[in-house]
Nucleic acid binder design. Structure first.
Lengths: 250, 250
DNA sequence: TAAAAATATGCATATTCACGCAAAATTTAG
DNA sequence: CTAAATTTTGCGTGAATATGCATATTTTTA
């Protein structure tokens, strides 16, 4: 059998079953596993498959969302992500919401961090799934089309049943007087439940949002443990929050 | 024998068998392997064939899918999607799994269809969320990195609590003798629970998968109500399934 | 953290290939 | 028709490629 014939068959198997084992291919094609491995390496270099330990996977199903959508204030969000990730410790139970800042966090989590991450957002779940060492658990429910997070009573119920070490949330409005606010009632219910189910809560938020107020209240500033922005923690802009005393400013 | 004659015969052989070995051609045409190699080199430079180590292959046959992010057998899957969507009625409760065929279905659902769709796959959830008139509900759980669907006991529990009108599943292996099969135990458990929680079940599957068998059994052919392929329902290929009596062939 | 599985690497072996050259076949010119 | 010119072919040699095995290393799993 020609090498290219094997390649063709391997490609067919990969695309048919989304994943193939070196062992199975070796039996199917009646060549040694070494040969299969060499084949997989070649196809991987041609970017036709995704080689993984033990075999190979189809590229198509693994990276469905490559569309590079521009993210507003991406640099600021990257800075915030780094600070948030500094809070992550090995084997922690972490609960995260949705939104572009949380997406940035989930991308930047170090590959070697071993932890369990719960999320209410399908996009975040997919992004987290790229990390081999993370156990990813989706809190399912009705998918809100505006916010792209799962909402509804089932989410509240599920959240009530777990206790995580750290919860990372975003917010639409933040101010010293009115605390964290949002405009979507369903989303607010979910975030409140998230805060209840975590020992510590961090809110991530670009400084631009300071002093904006939305219609529905999520929590007071003193109810959260960390406020994470792209600013230097000593920045005078944060003085008013510092006076609130409670939250760690990062 | 003239060189041009050989070339014609070689081209015929290549197109007939999709591949030729230098050795075989040498015997067939009663010339030395060197001569055959020279012939193959010439035909390769004319881009009539693709020369490879040991012989040559047909150009068209070689790599059917060059675009890296293209879905394998996309046209077939589009056809399948159309047939599956024909089963959808207004205000139905529909339960769908994951995979590229299901993704294709979720893209092609008509914008004006008003229905509720449950899914165990975050990618599918996001795709479904594009449709204004669909209520999208994610069945959350531990996200399996291989299959990109939620698995584990919580998924089984949640599925046990719902009763949908129609369930659409994919399968890795399908054959008359062994029914539907897959290689991932967790995935199989989820699919079995999906079938239990639906009044009717449809399995979508490109014909190429026929007669492939994986290690773990999902269900018998008679346990599903519809088998949807890209083939004409009257195709003789489907005769063996027709004899099973039960499933509607679409 | 230790055992097991998968992988990478070097090496031996067997084909397959390219190149030069001379013989054979074919074409061309007279 | 014949001889020279040209092309094609076959063979020997060494290089390149493909494959399997042994062993060391890495990764996974329990």
């Amino acid at each position: 059998m020609l090498k290219e014939e094997r390649h063709k068959i391997i490609l067919r198997e990969v695309n048919l079953h989304n994943k193939v084992l070196t062992n199975d291919l070796s039996e199917l094609l009646e060549v040694s596993e070494d040969t299969i491995r060499r084949d997989l390496n070649e196809l991987d270099e041609l970017e036709m498959i995704l080689k993984v330990h033990g075999g190979a996977m189809s590229k198509t199903f693994h990276y469905p969302f490559n569309g590079q959508n521009r993210v507003y204030a991406l640099e600021a969000k990257k800075t915030i992500a780094q600070k948030a990730i500094a809070l992550f410790k090995k084997d922690m139970l972490i609960l995260v919401e949705g939104g572009t800042t949380i997406m940035e966090i989930s991308k930047q989590i170090p590959a070697d961090l071993h932890a369990t991450v719960f999320t209410v957002c399908p996009q975040v779940a997919i992004s987290l799934a790229e990390h081999e060492n993370l156990e990813v658990i989706t809190i399912g429910g009705r998918l809100s089309k505006n916010s792209n997070i799962h909402t509804g009573a089932s989410v509240i119920n599920e959240l009530a049943a777990i206790k995580t070490d750290l919860c990372i949330i975003g917010t639409n409005g933040i101010s010293v007087e009115n605390g964290l606010t949002d405009s979507d009632w369903e989303v607010v219910q979910v975030i409140k439940a998230m805060i209840r189910s975590a020992k510590k809560t961090a809110v991530v938020c670009i400084a631009e949002k300071f002093d904006s107020v939305q219609k529905i209240k999520i929590a007071d500033i003193k109810d959260v443990d960390y406020v994470i922005t792209e600013l230097d923690p000593d920045s005078p802009v944060l003085d008013v929050y510092r006076r609130e005393g409670k939250p760690g400013l990062l």
